[in-house]
Design a protein around this nucleic acid. Sequence first.
RNA 1: GGAGGAGUGGCCGAGCGGUUUAAGGCGGCGGUCUUGAAAACCGCUUUCCCGAAAGGGGACGGGGGUUCGAAUCCCUCCUCCUCCGCCA
Length: 424
Amino acid sequence: MLDIRYVRENAEKVRRDLVEKLFFDPAPLDAILQLDAERRRLQVERDTLNARRNALSKEMSDPTKREALKIEAAALKEKIPALEKAVAEIEAQQTEIALQLPNLPHESVPIGRDETENRVLREEGRKREFDFVPKPHWDLASALAIIDFDRGVKIAGSRFYVLCGAGARLQRALINWMVDLHVQEHGYAEVYPPYMVKRECLIGTAQLPKFGDNLYRDAEEDFWWIPTAEVPVTNLYRDEVLDAARLPINHVAYTACFRREKMAAGRDTRGIKRGHQFDKVEMVKFVHPDTSMAELERLLADAEDVLKRLELRYRLVQMCTGDLSFSAMVKYDLEVWAPGADEWLEVSSCSNFGDFQARRAAIRFKDKGSKDKPRLVHTLNGSGLALPRTLIAVLENYQQADGSVVVPAVLRPYLGGLEVIRRA
RNA sequence: GGAGGAGUGGCCGAGCGGUUUAAGGCGGCGGUCUUGAAAACCGCUUUCCCGAAAGGGGACGGGGGUUCGAAUCCCUCCUCCUCCGCCA
C-alpha cells in the first residue's frame, strides 16, 4: 500500500508513475484523493462532537448537575453514531481502493511496457558443450523412472507428478543443501511456517485482494494455501514493532507452494516446470529502509551462489517497470539454462518491496527506549531456489549420452555419496 | 468435539458503571549524588488518526450492543489454560 500522505502531497508524481511507468489506470488515484479529503472532514467533525461528549460526561459525574445536562447529552447521542458510521464507511472504501494500487517503481528501474523490454544484465557460468542432442527432462526422467507423470495425473490431475526413487531423493538433497547453505554461509535463520494462513496474511503481502484467482482456499475455515513462503514468513512480524538493533532479520524457509495457475492455463503443461504444487526455498529480509537497496544486492548474491555452486549457466534479468510485480519496487530474476528444453528457466525472483508490504502488514521498528515514532521496515524476498526448475536444470545439464545423470559435486554428500543416477 | 476458567501497557498486576489523564511493582532510558559504580532519590517510558503547532479524538483480545457515560454490564467470535474424548 502507498502512503496516503505521500500520495496526497505528490499526487502528480504518483499519477505520472502510474501512467507513464506502470501503464496503470490512474482512476483509483482520483477516487482515493477525494475519499481522503472527505474522510478527514468527517473525522474532524466527529472528534469535535466526541470532545463535547467527553466534557459533558465529566461534568455529569457530579449528580447535582446531571439532570440539567441530560438534554444536550442525549442530542449528541443522536448525532455521533451516524458520523461514526460515515467515517468507518469512507475509510473502508478508501482502504479497498488503496489495496488495488501497485507499488511505485524505484527510480533505477528501466521503463518498459512488458517482458520484452526487460534487461539481461549479465550471463554467468560456462555453457556445457554436448556431443549428443540433449534430451528434455521429461524424456530423461521418464527413462530413468525418477518422475512418474502418468500416475501423478491419475491421482491428482493435470499439472501433478510424482517424484520417485533417486528423483525424490535428489530434490530432498537440493532442499537440504540449499537451506544449509543459506543458514551456514549466508546468515539466514531457518523457519518452518504453516502452509495454510489467514486471509490477513495474503493482504499483508498483497496477493489479496487482486490475485485471489491464483490461490487455493478452504472455504469452510477460510484458510488459504500459501503460494510462496513469502506469505507466512513476511507475516511473522505482522503488527509488531521490532527493536532496531535486531535488523536486518534474515529468514530462510523451505515450503511447498500451491498455485492455481489459472492465468497460465495451457502454458508449460509438459514436464515439471509449472505445477499446482511445487517446493521452494525462500529467503526473506526485514531491513532498515536506508539499507534495502544494498540488501537486495546481497539477496541476489545469495541466490546466485546456489547456481554458481551447482555450476549451472544462468543469466540475471532486470524487470522493466511494466513487468514489475504488483508489490515490487525493484525486481531481478535469475534464469538458468535448460539445454534439453532449450530455454531459460526462471528459478529465482528477488525483489525489494520497500515499505509497501510493511505498511499493509504493519511491520515496524524503533530504537529501544527511543521516543521517535516507529517506522516501517523494508521487506525483501528472493527464491533460493525454486525446486522443480532447479531439478530440470540439473537433470538436463548433467545428463550423459547414455541417459544417466551425474550428481553435482556439492550434492553428493546429501545423497550418500551417489555420483551418477542410472536406470534402476 | 464436550465441560470449566482466563485474556488490562515491554513484563507482572490492580481495577467490578462516573477525579482512571489505567494504581502499584519489575524492566528500560535520562538526571541528582559519587573519583567511578552500586544504593537512594527525581523524572521519563504503549500505539493509531486529524493538526504546522497548541490541542483534540480513538484503542484494556476482535466485533457488536446497553447507557448521558463502559476496562467494568450483555451478546458473539478468537486465543490461551485445566479436565474429558479423539488422534500422528
